[in-house]
């Protein structure tokens, strides 16, 4: 307790770390939240996403998001399979938030050259995946306002961790 008090006093006086500038934060901050906070301005449609997908995504995820060689994740289909003996978890059947699709593509894809797609391109590819999963039409414009409003089929599919399943001693 004494150590904690002493430490908080010392830390408030000690210069360790330097203040982070707004510009520095802007440069590094790529977090996107389910309510759309963090999404950059931009727009795209499934129609516009086809060429980008073909050039940047199809090599691994296959022509229409069906995955490849049981190695690269399948992105399309699987709705209704979660209660079956062989669940198929995809963007359409499993992912609860559309913002996660945008965020995943923007931060981590294409695998070899992540963060090279421009926001408009990411909106377009996201729109394509949502369209292939029957969630939006081919001409629906995804942008920073409409994307967080898209309701994913498995939006209500998640529950809090209920473990332990056995009674613990107090």
């Amino acid at each position: 307790m004494f150590e904690a008090l002493l430490l908080s006093t010392l830390l408030s006086q000690t210069v360790t770390g330097r203040p982070a500038s707004a510009e520095e934060i802007r440069k590094f901050d790529i977090t996107v939240f389910p309510d759309g906070k963090g999404l950059p301005a931009g727009k795209g449609t499934a129609a516009a996403g086809k060429e980008i997908y073909k050039a940047k995504c199809a090599e691994c995820h296959n022509e229409k998001g069906e995955g490849r060689d049981q190695q690269y994740p399948r992105l399309v289909g699987g709705v209704g399979s979660l209660t079956s003996p062989k669940p198929v978890k995809t963007v359409g059947s499993y992912w609860p938030h559309a913002t996660t699709v945008w965020d995943t593509i923007f931060r981590a894809m294409p695998y070899e050259t992540p963060r090279t797609l421009k926001p408009d391109e990411v909106y377009a590819v996201t729109a394509l995946l949502l369209h292939w999963n029957g969630i939006i039409s081919e001409t629906f414009e995804l942008n920073e306002k409409t994307l967080p409003q898209v309701k994913m089929p498995n939006r209500d599919g998640f529950i809090p961790d209920a473990r332990p399943y056995q009674k613990l001693k107090k």
Partner: peptide, 25 residues
């Protein structure tokens, strides 16, 4: 609030026979 990142939604969630999955386990 959580970011609901790829890793904590698409993966690392525990699917139950009911079709619901435990999140943040």
């Amino acid at each position: 609030e959580p970011a609901m990142s790829n890793q904590e939604t698409a993966h690392y969630t525990d699917l139950h026979p009911t079709g619901k999955a435990s999140i943040f386990s």
